[in-house]
Simulated assay, not measured.
Amino acid sequence: MITIETHIAVTQKEPIRFQDYGTGIFTGISTKSALKKAIKKGLIYIDEKKASTGTFIYGSEKITFNKPEENNTKKRLNLKLEVVFQDNYLAIINKPPGILVSGNTFKTIDNALEQNITKSSLPDATKPRPVHRLDFPTTGLLIIGKTSASILALNKLFENKKIQKTYLAVTIGEMIKKGTINTNVDNKEAFTTYNVLKTVTSNKFNYLNLVKLEPKTGRKHQLRVHLSSINNPILGDAKYGIPGKIIKGKGLYLHAYSLDFTHPFTNKKISVTKEPHNKYTKIFPML
């Protein structure tokens, strides 16, 4: 038996190829590669005609995905997530440590979203999708798109650097109070500004610092690489830390603390913060 998912295309300012529009509008088709495979198998129709990657989407087209029923009976990930904010377009969750945002494993944030986030009532509602990433050990705020249009719009905001992200980290060693780090990451330009909020002495590490970080670029492991490059690695960083000064069992002390951006549909200012885990307050009680 075949089940059918239906999607009504959002009106476009300019026509867009289906291979660029269709990613993420149906459950299980989260990449261009998966979309192309579904099209090749003849599973997707646009206005009752078989879709092709070059079909142009103008808006209001009826797009259907014919999906084997067994895909609907797949195991659901039972993982409780804290939803910090949500509306009909997007959501913001508090990512726990020790879990991938997405990937080829069962236990990911991506696989837990449908069980935690209210489905949008808009015509282009789709499976909730993360629109950026946090590292496996990093905690904190993660933005989720709930409609096809919002996923595209949020990606555009990130591309144009219109979303301001602030992190909190605990770093090791004596540290200059503020500055900018511009060490290349993966041979690409990368910029991070930092401000030391508080420093305490430590028998094991000499000094521990509570640091506010604002990445101006979004390279993989950027904050961890940058702080390591100035000999102030993040506490608990097994990959970029100093040998002999890596604690075990406490995780990485890096937290995505705040997000500030203009909502792409309501034009309201979104400013969300999430306090870090109480392991931070054991070092810095003022938190």
Rank of each mutant, 00 (worst) to 15 (best):
I29V: 15
T31N: 13
T31D: 12
S33P: 12
A34W: 05
A34T: 13
A34H: 14
L35E: 02
L35M: 12
L35F: 13
L35Y: 13
K36D: 09
K37E: 14
A38N: 14
K40N: 10
K40I: 04
G42L: 08
G42E: 12
G42Q: 09
L43S: 14
L43R: 13
Y45F: 14
Y45R: 12
Y45M: 11
D47W: 01
D47F: 03
E48N: 14
E48I: 07
K49N: 08
K50H: 08
K50R: 05
K50W: 03
K50N: 08
A51N: 05
A51L: 03
A51M: 05
A51V: 03
S52H: 05
T53D: 00
T53H: 01
T53S: 06
G54M: 00
G54L: 02
T55C: 03
T55Q: 05
F56L: 11
F56Q: 11
F56V: 11
F56R: 11
F56K: 10
Y58F: 14
Y58H: 15
G59R: 01
G59H: 03
E61I: 09
I63H: 00
I63P: 03
I63T: 02
I63S: 03
I63K: 03
T64P: 02
N66R: 10
N66E: 11
N66F: 07
P68T: 09
E69A: 11
E69S: 12
E69V: 08
N71Q: 13
N71S: 08
N72E: 15
K75Y: 09
R76C: 09
N78C: 06
L79W: 11
L79H: 13
L79R: 08
L79G: 11
L79M: 10
K80Q: 12
K80F: 08
L81N: 09
L81F: 10
L81H: 10
L81Y: 12
E82H: 08
E82C: 00
V83A: 00
V83R: 04
V83D: 06
V84E: 00
V84F: 02
Q86W: 06
Q86D: 12
D87V: 06
N88M: 08
N88Y: 03
Y89N: 15
Y89Q: 09
Y89A: 05
L90W: 00
A91D: 04
I92W: 04
I93H: 01
I93P: 00
N94K: 03
N94L: 01
P96A: 00
P96G: 00
P96F: 02
P97R: 01
P97D: 00
G98D: 07
I99G: 02
I99L: 00
L100P: 06
V101I: 06
S102M: 04
S102E: 12
N104Q: 14
F106P: 14
F106G: 11
F106S: 10
T108M: 05
T108F: 02
I109Y: 02
N111G: 07
A112L: 04
A112H: 10
L113F: 05
E114P: 14
N116S: 08
I117T: 11
K119R: 15
K119W: 10
S120W: 09
S120R: 14
S121L: 11
S121I: 09
S121C: 10
L122Q: 15
L122G: 10
L122C: 10
P123L: 05
A125H: 15
T126K: 07
T126Q: 15
K127D: 12
K127A: 11
R129T: 12
V131S: 07
